[in-house]
Design a protein around this nucleic acid. Structure first.
Lengths: 150, 150
DNA sequence: ATCAATTATTTCGATATCGAAAGAATGCGC
DNA sequence: GCGCATTCTTTCGATATCGAAATAATTGAT
């Protein structure tokens, strides 16, 4: 999408800036993760399980915005490195829960604080009220788009 | 990133909502492109060249936010389908310009209007002022993050 | 109880994407 | 003008990602 100056089409203009902002911030965070041998998806899984406890693959896939097919390989990589373990959910044996190992917990605990600080730093060009404003607008937009998805 | 309710860390909260919003809207647009046999990247190239005229690969890579290595394959696909053509830039022979063929121009001309309408529709949950507000915040954030990059 | 429909995960084959290094052309400093 | 650092594109090898089909487990209607 390419627009500029005084946008005749505000939605188009907002869309391209939204995508670029998300991409720029993510690009800023990636080297740190890469240094720890993690992709953004792998980090997302560790972080979700760290903060929410064991989750099944489907929930994780929705959480980190990837297909369940892909999540299988993401978790495979983490499991190979003994950062997480799969466990059949006893209450619904179709599900596989992903749990952190001690090693995985150590890694994500060590990584998360500086990751959060990097995000805060990237966002520091917006003041607190603006950050909340942005979050609110994105939340409404994301919910509407997700609802339209069928 | 997983937060919720009253965010203790507004930046973190804004970041996750930003990424989810961008992803949800993009996911909404993808089926239309897929039906035309285009990926988001391929569409991005056609659209950029359509609106800006011939561009060299490096500029295109920056425009659509991908690596130059990847852009080579994106343009390869488009060229194989005779939607674009490569042309050495005579003024700087290191550069390769990408131009639309008649076929490519037909395709993007036919596709773009409904694409733009789909974006407007996705954004219609925000009023005009909110869309501009969102664009402005994203623009500042994106610029700051891009500036911090190297 | 049985089986059809549903849900969760994995497998499969194909493509997209990346980072690093190689290759090609340019331009800068001298 | 010469050579070297720079810029642009491609190649290479590896991984990430996807959609569709296959597999496994559960639920629900009868």
């Amino acid at each position: 999408m390419v627009t500029g100056g005084h946008p005749r089409l505000p939605a188009l203009d907002a869309y391209i800036k939204l995508v670029r902002a998300a991409s720029s911030v993510t690009a800023l965070l990636e080297p740190r993760l890469r240094a720890a041998g993690l992709t953004t998806s792998q980090f997302g899984v560790l972080e979700a399980v760290h903060h929410l406890g064991p989750l099944c693959l489907g929930d994780l896939a929705r959480k980190i915005l990837t297909s369940s097919a892909n999540l299988t390989t993401v978790v495979d990589s983490l499991e190979r490195r003994r950062l997480v373990a799969r466990r059949r959910d006893p209450s619904d044996r179709r599900r596989t829960e992903v749990c952190l190992t001690a090693r995985g917990r150590r890694l994500i605990s060590g990584l998360f604080p500086s990751h959060a600080r990097a995000i805060e730093h990237a966002f520091s060009t917006l003041d607190d009220a603006e950050q909340r404003e942005l979050a609110g607008l994105c939340r409404r937009l994301g919910l509407a788009a997700a609802a339209a998805k069928p």
